[in-house]
Design a protein around this nucleic acid. Structure first.
Lengths: 117, 117
DNA sequence: CAGTATCCCGTGTGATACTG
DNA sequence: CAGTATCACACGGGATACTG
């Protein structure tokens, strides 16, 4: 993913690349997918993606927020709670992401059938 | 993108991640997108994506081929010609990729409007 | 034309530990 | 609970030159 927003958003590359700059990072797709269900807390996301570390998840969330894809809401309670939800712009990724998921699922199924445990 | 096919295709991650493992690399989305138009030669792809180096493009193509997304055809002519086209499996990415493209295009347009050259 | 061979570097990812 | 700090590293990406 390289440079992030350098000039990929400008004329150079195809928009596909621009989109992948944002959601292509290892865990971002998963984050967006899970947030399609609605607002989730930090730990909820971690539970759904057990193998991602806090640092990486945090980083991904901050980047997605900076990119206007998700919204971070802090509830001033104790202990602190933070909710993450998709912005309308992020919601617009629903179809493509579900499409990718379906595609990935078919391949996974095929691969698993062959590997057969 | 990390490890490539280690065990992401197994139960661990969501299929979204599995899909991004394959098309998430910097230029792969672009390659697939351009191949939606039909078979293209190596140099055709390079012309459409002027900033990618031969090595990287070659690498991307080999990986996509290994993943069963594209098909490589060698025409025994002189000078040699090689065509790349999507497999049916790759064709199945059409909708998601076009969706991502549309999404990326909207953001690019918005960003450019703000940056205003 | 369609690649491969080297070499190098940035950064994305990760493990671990600590904090408001 | 929801993070940040620090350290380390492999790997993807890139520049350049060479080849069947």
């Amino acid at each position: 993913m390289a440079k992030r927003h350098s000039n990929y958003t400008r004329g150079t590359g195809c928009p596909v690349e621009a989109a992948l700059e944002i959601i292509g990072a290892k865990w971002k797709g998963g984050v967006i997918y899970h947030l399609l269900d609605g607002e989730l807390r930090f730990m909820e996301l971690q539970r759904r993606m057990p193998t991602v570390t806090q640092r990486i998840l945090s980083k991904a969330l901050r980047e997605l927020e900076a990119d206007g894809v998700i919204l971070r809401t802090v509830y001033p309670t104790v202990p602190p709670q933070v909710g993450y939800r998709l912005t309308p712009d992020g919601e617009a990724l629903r179809e493509p992401v579900l499409g990718l998921r379906a595609w990935g699922a078919r391949r996974t199924a095929a691969a698993c059938a062959m590997a057969a445990e």
